[in-house]
Amino acid sequence: MTKILGCLLISLTLASCFGGGAVTRSVSQQRLTDLQQRAQISADKGFYDDARRLLQEALQLAGSLDDRQGQTAVLVQQARLARQNNQQAQAGQAVAQALNLSVGSDLHADAAQEKALQELAAGRTDQALNWAEIALREERGDRLARRLNLLARLALLQGRTTDAANLAEQALKKSGAEPMAAERANALRMLGTVRGQQQRYAEGEQLLGQALELDKQLELPDRIAADLEALAVVAALRGDQVRQQDYRHRAQTVMDSLIKRRKTPGTPQAGQNR
């Protein structure tokens, strides 16, 4: 018994020495990250007021520490939350501050991407394209797939299918890392859509099927619905009305369920790892 306890103690000591993780941060930094994570969880559950309060606390904490990176990250998160709640003015204000604070830092790409998404939400695709290009240019980390996918999405919206396909293929290549799994699914969806439009139906369906599988693994209902909708479009282009109806019905069911869940705040939302 004593031997077993000794072994356990030694194991725990080794774990504490070598298993603490690659990144070592201060208590305040850890608290900042915690607040951000809690805000994200609250937002995913539908508690937007809580999320807003936590982000405000995080912003004050980052400001008190003169942590410009932290401030930028929180501001981008605030802008995203406001955009998702259709609070355009607040979203624009937050992203403008983030862009000012992040000049020269690797977070500038995130701020520019958020700005592009806001312009896209406002229907200004040209402005969105400018900011998406800035985001691509400013990207210095491993988020290249995200930037390329946004450009591909905009190209697809503007009807530049070839450009969209090229950009999506590049994004697909750059999205090997696990955190970019959602972007890999996005790239596959766009590529499958383009192939359908190019009458390469089998290839398109295959790509969209892969995207669907990935999104199901990631538990992203809105993306699952988008994949099914894209599959319905390809089936329609192919002339297969039975499959088209089937895909459309499935997409509708997923969206209906998602809407019902969003109407009930506090319901845990899937796909918090995107």
């Binding site: 990144v23 990250t33 990250a73 995203r80 995130d110 998404l117 995200r146 996918n149 994004a171 988008a226």
Partner: peptide
């Protein structure tokens, strides 16, 4: 290893 800090949760993806 532990996940990277706050950047991962701040920005949304392309879609």
């Amino acid at each position: 290893a532990a996940s990277s800090p706050h950047r991962s949760i701040s920005a949304g993806d392309s879609h």
